[in-house]
Amino acid sequence: MKPAAFDYVRVRSVREAVDLLAAKDDAKILAGGQSLTPMLNLRLARSQLLIDIKRAEGLRSLAADDSVVAIGVGWTHAEIEDGVFEDPTRGLMRHVARGIAYRAVRNRGTIGGSLAHADPAADWVSTMAVLGATLVCEGAGGKRRHVAADSFLQGAFLTQLASDEVLVAVEVPRLSAQARWGYYKICRKAGEFAHALGAVIHDPARNICRIVVGATDGPPKLLPGTAAALAADPMSEALDGLDQEIIAALPEHEPAARRLHATAVRRAIAAMSTRMDH
């Protein structure tokens, strides 16, 4: 379980990374390395060149205004968990970070690395989708492209990132003080990737209610029908249309898997709160 030989470059800038990506066919970006390095060790992933962006300028940035906080992709799960910077989502992001894998993984793994790796069961994939976040990708010549997080994944481990683009930031909309959120994932053991995941935010002040079912076989799916029902009757936990909407959203899944996903969503809704620790 040792990787095949590869070259390693620690870049100082995103531009340098983009140039290397463009020059080498199978170059890969290395951020925290918590998914990529095990796959390299197993020789399931191979690369002639690893481009380490951990120290690249500008990737541990924060840019906030009244409505959005742009979070550089280099922040680790542990830093988010620890509240090293202000959580624009009123505790949702800290809650999610705390539940990712194990602390040792969180110490190195980064939010951007997780999103770009695009494991459907990864927490940030569903979290950014439910938040309606925007992902910022930088390509040749410093050209930046904005992609909605809920359409970033094209499939499992497949994203909209072009082969010479680097994910550089996540623009997370602020939740208002009245916003409630719920997040529930079903795992057999602590630290395991989720088998089913439900995430919900309801922010009446911003007229937003979004529900996501995640940890599917592919991209997280929005459940707009159930969200509309919830927005219309915020106290309702009896969401009659949920099962039907899940069936429509996950047509390829086995009935047992659909029931599990419906349970995750139902419990995320039931857990909705304005508090962090729930």
Partner: peptide, 13 residues
């Protein structure tokens, strides 16, 4: 073939 798929109980379980 990895501990992702072969689950061992940990302290929490």
């Amino acid at each position: 073939s990895t501990l992702i798929d072969y689950l061992l109980p940990g302290p929490v379980e």
